[in-house]
C-alpha cells in the first residue's frame, strides 16, 4: 500500500500540518521467504486497528515499530523522530503483549514500578506514582499480589498501569486482551479509552492488533487491513467494517454483499 493509495482509500490526509505520531515510510522486512512492505501514517491521538488473517504481518508491523525487528530498508518515525536504528528501550512507546506482560517473581507494585525505575530503587515520589497508577486501573490494594494470585484481566490491568506510568505518546497493543472473555475484553478496552480521555500518562495514540471487528468498530478511528505482508486497505473504521471499502476486507469479515 502506497501513501497515495492510502489517501485514495480514505486514509488520514498526508499534510495535516503536524508531525504524525507514527510514520512507516517504505519499511521493508525480509525473513527467510517472508517479504513485508509497510507504508503507514498514524496521526497523534488516533486509534488505529490492524486486522487481517493470521500471518498477514500485523504483529510483525508492531515489532518493527517497537524495535524488536529491524527493517531491511525504510524509515520508522515516532513523533517526528527517526527511531529506525534505536533500541527498543530508546523508543517513546509502550507495548502490551497477549501474555507474559508481567514478571512472575514480582508483585503488582514492583511490576508497575519497573516502568519508571528499571533498577527498582523506588523513591517516595515513585511509590506515590505507582500507587496512583494502580488506582487508575481499579487495582487499589493489589500492590502486594503476585501475578499468579491475580486473574487474567487483573494482570492486564497491571500492565496497563505500567504503560500509564511510563507516559509515552504511543501504545502498541498486540492482542493483550484476546485471551479474556468478551465482556472482560470490552471492559478492558473501555478502561483504556477512559484513561486516554482522562489524560495524565496514558498514551494518546493507539495501534491495536485485533481479530474482533466489534472492538475496532467501538474504539478505532481507522482500520487497516493487512494481507500477505502489506496494508492492502485502510480507511475510517465505519467504512472499512461495513464492507464498503474493499472486497478483500469484506471476504475476510465474512460480510455478504456486492463486494464479496
Amino acid at each position: 500500500m502506497t501513501m497515495a493509495a492510502q489517501e485514495m482509500d480514505g486514509g488520514m490526509p498526508r499534510n495535516d500540518g503536524c508531525e504524525p505520531a507514527l510514520l512507516l515510510d517504505g519499511v521493508r522486512f525480509a525473513h527467510g521467504e517472508t517479504r513485508m512492505d509497510f507504508d503507514l501514517r498514524v496521526s497523534a491521538g488516533e486509534w488505529l486497528a490492524l486486522i487481517g488473517p493470521s500471518g498477514a504481518g500485523k504483529s510483525t508491523l508492531l515489532d518493527l515499530v517497537a524495535g524488536f525487528l529491524r527493517p531491511a530498508s525504510g524509515q520508522v518515525r515516532i513523533a517526528g523522530s527517526d527511531v529506525t536504528e534505536l533500541a527498543p528501550a530508546e523508543r517513546p512507546l509502550s507495548m502490551l503483549f497477549q501474555e507474559n506482560n508481567l514478571f512472575p517473581g514480582l508483585d503488582a507494585f514492583r511490576n508497575v514500578a519497573l516502568g519508571i525505575s528499571p533498577r527498582l530503587w523506588i523513591s517516595k515520589a515513585d511509590r506515590r506514582a505507582v500507587e496512583a497508577a494502580l488506582a487508575s486501573v481499579g487495582l487499589e490494594g493489589y500492590g502486594k499480589r503476585l501475578p499468579s494470585e491475580m486473574s487474567g484481566g487483573e494482570r492486564q490491568r497491571v500492565a496497563l498501569a505500567r504503560a500509564f506510568l511510563r507516559e509515552q505518546p504511543l501504545i502498541l497493543l498486540d492482542e493483550p486482551f484476546a485471551a479474556l472473555g468478551p465482556a472482560l475484553r470490552a471492559d478492558m478496552l473501555k478502561l483504556l479509552a477512559e484513561l486516554r480521555r482522562r489524560g495524565g500518562g496514558m498514551p494518546k495514540t493507539v495501534v491495536m492488533v485485533t481479530h474482533h471487528p466489534e472492538d475496532a468498530a467501538t474504539h478505532a478511528d481507522r482500520v487497516a487491513y493487512l494481507e500477505q505482508g502489506e496494508i492492502v486497505a485502510i480507511g475510517p473504521a465505519r467504512q472499512m467494517l461495513s464492507g464498503g471499502a474493499d472486497a478483500r476486507v469484506s471476504r475476510y469479515l465474512g460480510l455478504p454483499g456486492e463486494n464479496v
Binding site: 524488536f68 528501550a89 514478571f103 517473581g105 516502568g115 528499571p118 533498577r119
Partner: peptide, 22 residues
C-alpha cells in the same frame, strides 16, 4: 517466553535486574 526478553528491552532493565527477574 519471548515477551519477557521484549519487556526487558523495552523497560531498559539493567543486567542485574534481568538476571534476577528472568
Amino acid at each position: 517466553p519471548a515477551e519477557s526478553w521484549k519487556l526487558c528491552g523495552q523497560l531498559a532493565l539493567p543486567p542485574l535486574t534481568v538476571f534476577r527477574l528472568v
